[in-house]
């Protein structure tokens, strides 16, 4: 229980996936312009990351390792993520059109979100047990969402700000992310596994 709690705290705050580990910067810069899209993307990422980790962990432990296929790790994982995204998209469209409308456009983008591949790879490379992996994926995706939503809140204000035109767009977003990352530095060293 204690390990699970520390995994949650560490991967939401201390080693935040976006601000400390630099995974998933593309969606972080791309969809943080509006709060609405940021929330939609966050939900999609939480869902896909947890599902993907569940599937890849089982696949890795019960198929790749027993058959000595460890070298297929990268190929398998990325294919699992890509097909999972496709599957989720199809299922959502059938079952819950409202949810699909909210998440639909973000799902294809997730395949190339490196945070998802990172979480599945790290779960097996850090040798987490099954439950730990799921909690790890959940915490990492919540951390991603936290960063994304904070950023969206800041950027909505930033639109109105007056600044040199060379800074506008991604340059100022990156600098803001840097300042946000300094704030998260405060959590550093608080806990470790």
């Amino acid at each position: 229980m204690e390990t699970l709690l520390s995994i949650i705290f560490i991967y939401i705050f201390v080693e935040n996936f976006v601000l400390h580990r630099f995974f998933g910067i593309c969606p972080f810069l791309g969809v943080s312009r509006k709060m609405e899209t940021a929330i939609g993307m966050s939900m999609a990422v939480i869902f896909v990351m947890t599902m993907a980790t569940l599937v890849t962990w089982l696949l890795y432990t019960f198929v790749l390792i027993p058959f000595n296929l460890g070298y297929l790790q990268i190929v398998t994982f990325i294919l699992v993520i890509a097909s999972l995204v496709q599957l989720v998209e199809t299922v959502l469209r059938k079952i819950s059109p409202t949810l699909y409308q909210g998440l639909g456009i973000f799902l294809p983008l997730i395949t190339t979100n490196c945070a998802v591949l990172a979480v599945t790879l790290l779960a097996v490379r850090l040798e987490f047990a099954f439950i730990e992996s799921i909690v790890f994926a959940l915490a990492a995706s919540v951390g991603f969402s936290l960063a994304l939503i904070i950023m969206a809140g800041i950027r909505e204000r930033l639109e109105m700000a007056n600044m040199p035109d060379v800074l506008q767009g991604s340059a100022v977003t990156l600098i803001t992310a840097g300042i946000l990352s300094i704030a998260f530095l405060g959590f550093q060293g608080m806990l470790s596994l």
Partner: peptide
């Protein structure tokens, strides 16, 4: 990490 963002920006 914070410096990476700022330097790139």
């Amino acid at each position: 990490p914070a410096g990476a963002f700022i330097a790139l920006g």
